[in-house]
């Protein structure tokens, strides 16, 4: 019933956070508190939420993800979702919590996307 939150060391301007357990009405405040300093850190552009270990998310958890998206979008950043289980992805899809283009089924898929973005930034093309 608990939520485990593992904040990994930042890589460049990416910050990866691995979650496992339940993100519900009882645990979402823990998530909000742990994410707050990351969202307030101007050195973080993209927040990668690894949800492989999350087996349940309620609307309270969706709101936490949504708040993070809005906070990062205000400075041009993104929340990228990695490895959501089918029931989690279904909840996200219903409320359109995260664009499908920001959801990745594997670390390799995410890394390829981040590499592509990195190259675009280096080339001075910041359309995306």
């Amino acid at each position: 019933m608990q939520l485990q939150i593992n904040i990994e060391p930042p890589t460049g301007r990416q910050q990866r956070v691995a979650l496992s357990g339940r993100v519900d009405t009882h645990t979402y405040q823990d998530l909000d508190q742990r994410l707050a300093p990351l969202l307030g850190n101007a050195a973080v552009d993209n927040l990668v939420l690894d949800l492989e270990g999350v087996d349940y998310i309620s609307s309270a958890g969706v709101r936490s993800v949504f708040r993070a998206r809005k906070a990062l979008a205000a400075r041009g950043g993104k929340v990228l979702v990695l490895n959501p289980q089918p029931q989690i992805k279904k909840v996200f899809d219903i409320v359109k919590a995260v664009p499908v283009t920001d959801v990745f089924r594997s670390t390799a898929e995410l890394d390829a996307y981040l590499d592509k973005m990195q190259k675009k930034v280096l080339a001075g093309d910041d359309d995306e």
Partner: peptide, 20 residues
């Protein structure tokens, strides 16, 4: 129902639960 197609900046954080 919330407008889930609205731009992110215009969307409300709440109101998603009943829609779910």
């Amino acid at each position: 129902a919330p407008d889930t197609e609205a731009p992110l900046a215009e969307r409300e954080v709440g109101g998603l639960g009943v829609h779910l």
